[in-house]
Design a protein around this nucleic acid. Structure first.
Length: 262
DNA sequence: AACACGACCTGGTAGC
DNA sequence: TGCTACCAGGTCGTGT
């Protein structure tokens, strides 16, 4: 599910449905931090913010509810309490709705952060690719210090925030850059193309994710966004008809077109 | 520093 | 049908 676009969709929805509400009760189940319940109960959700793939709900009193969806997490507001076993955490909000955190694989994170911990998290996350902070110059400077393959460079949250496996693959395809090419050796024009590709792929995906998520559905499915290469091993490239290939980098699948990615 | 790899978890699916 | 093996959108810790 969740890379930047999907997390953004979740946050926008939460701003409508949870911002300003008070947490009246909290039940924690299958959660590494049982103290979460005690620390959020009675607090008001002042604002909801996205930091890369992290969801930050600022609480009155100065602490922050931090949620990371990882692979299978989902966070949404619903009318009723979830059936037992379906959610890891749920919170009754003022106004009668329930904030639910679901997470099949239980890899996700729900915790409460104090200001210093919050600052530490902020320092670990690079520029937001859809903000003015993310300039070609900044991306170029970041690549200069790197000896990583471009694909792994993009997955590093300290370099650019919020890019995951799918959109790293899609951005490299759009930019015509081979995923194994070293980030530090990309020419300035190629970095410029990569920058444009990241911004374009992510803004399109945010649009799609928000539309997909605006309905009654609580799930975000990336299939709503037309993927050009991801998952298309052995299929013809949409641009040059070469066969898309799958390789493994850092233990994860990369798809690319040997014809148009150099 | 950079990389590989396993760990964390569960569930879906392809192949036998 | 039932078993096995592998795969999955993320990150962290350990070892080389």
């Amino acid at each position: 599910m969740p890379e930047l676009p999907e997390v953004e969709a979740v946050c926008r929805k939460l701003r409508e449905s949870a911002e300003g509400r008070r947490i009246l009760a909290c039940t924690v189940h299958r959660c590494a931090k049982p103290s979460v319940a005690r620390r959020v109960t009675g607090r008001q959700i002042v604002s909801v913010e996205r930091l890369g793939k992290n969801i930050l709900a600022r609480l009155d009193g100065g602490e922050t509810l931090h949620v990371h969806l990882r692979m299978t997490g989902n966070l949404y507001v619903e009318k009723r309490t979830p059936p037992p076993g379906e959610a890891r955490v749920w919170m009754t909000l003022s106004g009668g709705r329930v904030l639910v955190f679901e997470d099949t694989r239980a890899l996700g994170v729900v915790e409460v952060l104090r200001p210093p911990e919050m600052e530490k998290l902020r320092r670990a996350i690079g520029p937001e690719p859809l903000s003015e902070d993310f300039t070609v110059e900044r991306l170029l400077a970041a690549t200069r210090g790197s000896r990583q393959p471009a694909k792994l460079f993009l997955l590093d949250q300290r370099r650019v925030a919020g890019i995951g496996n799918i959109y790293a693959v899609e951005a490299l395809y759009k930019a015509g850059i081979h995923p194994a090419r070293l980030a530090g050796k990309l020419s300035a024009p190629r970095v410029r193309r990569l920058h444009a590709a990241i911004v374009s792929v992510l803004s399109d995906a945010v649009q799609s994710a928000c539309i997909a998520y605006s309905g009654p559905g609580r799930f975000v499915e990336a299939e709503t966004f037309p993927l050009a290469v991801y998952g298309r091993d052995q299929q013809p490239c949409l641009r040059c008809r070469s066969r898309i290939r799958r390789i493994v980098q850092g233990g994860r699948s990369t798809y690319f077109c040997p014809g148009c990615q150099r």
